[in-house]
Design a binder for these strands. Structure first.
Lengths: 220, 220
DNA sequence: GCCTGTGAACTCGTTCACAGCC
DNA sequence: GGCTGTGAACGAGTTCACAGGC
């Protein structure tokens, strides 16, 4: 008998665990596509080089999904992971700052399955407003953010503006009611308590590589 | 007297420290642009919400950059950080998989200053080969990777192909001599010991946000 | 026998607190 | 007095190792 726990404490679960659940989901999706029916934490770890104990610990926060002596049912596990991650619902997002990165994300979103839907592409540049993006959305005026967010039930704001505009856009997102923001501008944007901001800073990745190029790559 | 240590052990320094050095550099660059001459770890921490003790500890791996009772000289610190991160040299990179994301990176690279230079945009699709990108590079055949890497002194490989092609491209990069790889395809690519692979997986970020949307945002 | 679920041990990373120096 | 540089204390995160159940 497997069981999904619903009364866990969000504060006691590390963001690292959540990130790994997303990785596990991807692995399990591949196994499902291969027709694998059952998988043990050991097998999962071996295939995707992860740690079996960590997999079990991560799962344990959310329930008991496995069968002792056997392992996990792949299809069942996939649906548990989706449910835990909130992927059984549709999440609507707006992108502010229509450049190449925004276009890349718009195309990329097909890969995210049914869970994420881009419902707005906004920009402050009058020359861009009114343009049609390849994914069939019209570029709208960024000034209309506060009106669009509640109207279209937007939950996630994505910042793809140049660095100088990022903090202002973030503030506008927060005051329009958004509580989860994904920032791609290469600055540390701040928001009030209760707002979750994740930044993806490509400079950090490149500079880390430059460091290891200069000083040598560490063992394993 | 300030002093840059050169004989530190790469294996004893966490990747988290390196990532923070990159953040510190950005902060210090902003202070330099503002004309600030001296900054203490406390002031740096306050402005960019960091931890002062952590800043000092991170610096301490690489030398003694500060003056007791005073703080750090901003311009000096900037140049130390650049040197530590290996940004005082040019690093050449090739991008394999010419889509919107590749275009975004090509434009973005202007922001990374003089340290990174894209010297090749490759793709396997015959329809794309020969096209000119907005940054003035010709799209070349991905099959020519092994020839291009040594010829143009490429150090970093960037994978922006769709997921199914990523592992093959990674293997080709490794056998062409690349030792540092930045992967944007939404799969976990593997390489042999001695090769550093960093993956930027947008799905993980989005799914993390979906989790917190569903279960509530943790207290600070 | 085999594998999960989990307390206990350990490792790694962060923060504290203060000696040493300007 | 103020701030750096750093050992020591603490806390978070990972891995071990085994009891419990198929």
């Amino acid at each position: 008998m497997s069981l999904l726990r619903s009364n866990f404490d969000v504060n006691s679960i590390s963001a690292l665990t959540i990130a790994r659940l997303s990785i596990y989901l991807r692995c399990v999706e591949r196994l499902a596509a291969l027709g694998v029916e059952t998988v043990s934490s050991q097998e999962l770890a071996r295939r995707f080089n992860l740690n079996p104990a960590q997999i079990r610990k991560d799962f344990a926060y959310f329930g008991e999904f496995g069968v002792r002596g056997v392992g996990y049912n792949v299809v069942e596990l996939r649906s548990y992971l989706r449910e835990i991650l909130g992927l059984d619902m549709e999440h609507r997002l707006v992108i502010v700052g229509v450049g190449n990165l925004a276009m890349a994300l718009a195309n990329y979103s097909r890969f995210t399955g049914q869970s994420f839907l881009i419902v707005g592409m906004l920009d402050a540049n009058p020359e861009k407003i009114g343009m049609k993006t390849p994914n069939g959305l019209l570029v709208e005026d960024a000034a209309r953010l506060a009106e669009i967010v509640p109207q279209r039930n937007v939950e996630i704001g994505v910042i793809t503006t140049p660095a100088p505009a990022a903090q202002k856009v973030c503030d506008a997102m927060v005051s329009s009611g958004l509580r989860t923001i994904l920032n791609f501008a290469p600055v540390q944007v701040k928001g009030p308590e209760g707002v979750l901001i994740r930044s993806v800073d490509l400079r950090i990745y490149l500079e880390e590589l430059a460091f290891y190029l200069t000083h040598g790559i560490p063992e394993s």
